Amino acid sequence: MVKISKDRASIEAISGNVDKNALINNNYFVSGKLHGIDGISYMEKAEPISYEKLISMEGIPAFFKEFKLDFLVDGKIIETIDFNYGDSLSLIEFPEIPPKDGYYSRWEEVDMEDLIFDTEIHGEYIPYLTVLESKVKRDKVLSTILVEGLFTDEDTLNVEKVEDVEEFEIEKGTLLEQWAVNIPEDGANHRNIRYLPPNTKGKLQVYVLSNGKWTKTKSQWDGKY
């Protein structure tokens, strides 16, 4: 059984050096792609055979019949699944990666069809994104809306300026603009939202629509937001 991860030259199933007139025999291998020696397979010398024939040969080591799928996190095995040659494990349930403060996690993508070698799947920790920026920008420079939280690299902050604004009673002044903000769920009950207003004079007040009612919310300046 042959598995080659990297190659440069002379890549065949039977490896090693012999003298020109040396006798070569009884070399068998299982491979659907490689040949025996120098691009050629030879009967009873460097011969490709089926896996079933290989494991039926007398004296074959036990490890040729045993296969393991290992799940590793930080270099440590957290679960092992035994499988048979040629099994497909695409429907198995992956173990849960142990939580780590400040990080989310995921398993690397591995082809789980027709497994014929011991296989490792590695879990990785990725730092949370603590701020999401809207793609909508003020004067094509700064994002109009920023949201703080714990987000993944697959999360997107979707915002849209409301053209058909909903009028409601405000304490003082006139309505400047309305934005619809769709924030990815991260389990937080409360969050900080930063809003970049257009250049305008006067004191700004921020209202939030909650349960069908517009309510004035506490706000303070943080730089330009």
Rank of each mutant, 00 (worst) to 15 (best):
R194W: 01
S31M: 03
R106I: 02
I170Q: 10
D222S: 11
R138F: 13
S88K: 10
N26T: 06
E93K: 15
Y85P: 04
T80C: 00
I81T: 15
I55M: 09
I116E: 09
H35D: 09
N182Y: 04
S50D: 08
G36I: 04
E160Q: 13
A13C: 14
A188N: 13
E160N: 12
D118T: 04
G187H: 07
V30A: 04
I60V: 12
W214Q: 05
K140H: 02
D74S: 12
G102K: 11
I81S: 02
D118E: 10
A9P: 01
E166R: 10
W179L: 07
F94T: 00
E171R: 15
L69M: 11
K135R: 06
E133F: 12
L204S: 05
K45E: 09
S210M: 11
Y42V: 10
I97R: 03
E108S: 09
D111L: 03
I78T: 02
M1E: 12
I170C: 04
Y51N: 03
S143D: 07
I92D: 00
F117Q: 12
S134C: 05
P197S: 08
E154M: 05
G59S: 12
R106A: 09
E124I: 13
P98W: 06
D87P: 05
Y42C: 12
N192S: 03
E185F: 14
S219H: 04
P127V: 14
E47F: 13
D155N: 15
P184M: 05
E47V: 05
R194G: 03
R138S: 11
I40D: 00
M112R: 06
E166T: 15
S31Y: 04
Y207G: 02
P198V: 11
T152W: 00
F83R: 08
W221D: 03
L69I: 08
F63M: 07
E109A: 08
